[in-house]
Each structure stands twice: as C-alpha cells, then as structure tokens.
C-alpha cells in the first residue's frame, strides 16, 4: 500500500502520525481516502480540482506535473512539498 508522508503541521489531523499507509491508485484517491479517515486534511491539500497553490505532490521523490491525476504504485511514497524551481 502507498505510504503518505504527512507534513508535520498537519499531523494534528492524523493524531500525530507522520506516515500513513493509504489505499489508492492515484493521488486523488489517496487524498480522498485520507479525508475519510482524517476529516479536514483534504482542505489543507487540495483547492478545487488541483493541489493547493504553492504545494506540489512528489511521488517516489519525483515532483509530479499531473497533480491529483498522478498514478501511485503500491510501494510508492507520497510527499506534499513546496512547488519551487529556481533561477
């Protein structure tokens, strides 16, 4: 099952858990399944039909251009990170 790394500022929503195994084949499914267990977390991660501005999702250390549509494998790690590139 994919492992989601919960940002420390959101761990109050997950009872202090920093990593959580969540079912899902896409980031969208994972966020929805997280929300079912930890209400309120979706609002912190998602804005409408996209990852919240300023955030990006990284699956297996690769920042995804596809956001919520990004596919996730059973052994994947999912991180929510800053959307930055550089100069």
């Amino acid at each position: 099952m994919p492992i989601v790394w919960i940002p420390s500022l959101m761990q109050s929503l997950t009872g202090g858990k920093g990593t959580i195994e969540v079912e899902g084949n896409t980031v969208r499914q994972i966020v929805d399944n997280l929300e079912a267990t930890f209400p309120g977390i979706k609002d912190r991660l998602v804005d409408g039909d996209r990852i919240r501005p300023g955030l990006a999702v990284a699956v297996d250390a690769e920042v995804s251009e596809e956001g919520l549509r990004q596919k996730v494998a059973a052994e994947s790690e999912v991180h929510f990170v800053a959307a930055v590139s550089g100069g």
């Binding site: 940002p7 420390s8 500022l9 959101m10 609002d43 912190r44 991660l45 919240r52 955030l55 929510f80």
Partner: peptide, 22 residues
C-alpha cells in the same frame, strides 16, 4: 499566515509557516 492550509485568525506580515520534522 498560511500554515499549510491553516490560516491565522488575525492579519499578519508572516505569509507562511511550515515545518519539516524527522
């Protein structure tokens, strides 16, 4: 202040706060 989606109750010059912990 935006703390990864949580917003402060009062206006502030602090735009955002985040934390990484291991």
């Amino acid at each position: 202040t935006d703390s990864l989606g949580e917003t402060s109750k009062k206006p502030s010059n602090v735009v955002s706060y985040f934390q990484h912990k291991s």
